[in-house]
């Protein structure tokens, strides 16, 4: 679909690139205040590329699902031998491919334009990305299930989710600066532990095993729960006949 409609590239790649360019300049400017004590570029751009990756996983899954909503294609897919687990795998795979290309582009631009080196996180970048991938899939599944349940207009719940979540998980600041009730929410969101770990690693503290463990356990739990939620919605739609009507009457 990307090949037949290059305009879609805008949504996939332009926004992450714009985000890295804008945050790159902000980081550079902020670095002029506290250069000696704090590596603004490493922390802020590190946070931006990781957060964009997770948001992208979620939003690309949602977009792929919405394509099928807009083209009213569910009946063709689900009347074929395609299993619902295979359909979900397809959403994940397309999202992973486009998000990985976007990630490669953003770290390249961050490196070339602002001297950012992703390897400043060392090998920890891999568990960080893996855990964000797991959680991104979980959020993507949740939103697609919600759209599947409530109808196409529910997409408007999906777009602002990364922004809302970024406030709680402390992408750009430690969650400890949040008021108490917000910290409670922060503690149940896996990215909180990942971004906390990222800042620790950049500051030279590599003792983040507990962070990675908690993020892993929570991400797997969310993934299992959202998968079950999607299957439940699918089974409900089989009963109500929503699959054949979806996109036209819902």
């Amino acid at each position: 679909m990307l090949r037949s409609n290059p305009v879609r590239l805008t949504a996939h790649f332009l926004f992450p690139i714009m985000s890295i360019v804008m945050w790159g300049f902000i980081s550079k400017y902020m670095a002029t205040f506290g250069k000696e004590t704090f590596n603004f570029v490493a922390v802020i751009l590190g946070a931006v590329v990781l957060w964009d990756f997770m948001s992208s996983i979620q939003q690309r899954m949602m977009s792929a699902f919405l394509e099928d909503v807009w083209t009213r294609n569910f009946i063709n897919y689900f009347a074929s031998p395609l299993k619902v687990t295979e359909y979900i795998s397809g959403l994940v795979l397309t999202s992973l491919i486009t998000s990985s290309i976007g990630f490669a582009l953003t770290i390249s631009i961050a490196g070339l334009a602002f001297g950012y080196n992703i390897l400043i996180m060392g090998l920890y970048i891999f568990p960080f990305l893996f855990l964000l991938l797991l959680f991104g899939i979980a959020v993507g599944l949740f939103i697609t299930a919600l759209i599947f349940r409530l109808g196409p207009s529910a997409e408007w719940l999906g777009w602002p989710i990364p922004f809302i979540m970024s406030i709680f998980v402390g992408v750009f600041y430690p969650a400890s600066v949040l008021p108490g009730f917000m910290q409670i929410i922060s503690k149940i969101l896996p990215p909180s532990y990942i971004f906390d770990g990222m800042r620790a690693v950049i500051a030279g503290n590599f003792n983040i095993g507990a962070n990675l463990f908690l993020a892993f356990v929570l991400s797997v739990a969310y993934l299992a729960l959202t998968y079950l939620f999607f299957i439940k919605v699918y089974k409900r739609n089989l009963k109500t006949g929503a699959i054949s009507r979806f996109g036209s009457e819902e």
């Binding site: 679909m1 009946i75 395609l82």
Partner: peptide
Amino acid sequence: NFAAVYAHLPPNLTVWQNLYIFGLLY
């Protein structure tokens, strides 16, 4: 298999691509 007036094939794909994708699914 089936054909119905209300079941649309993805409009952004060419005729060949549509047949190829559904051929793979089946």
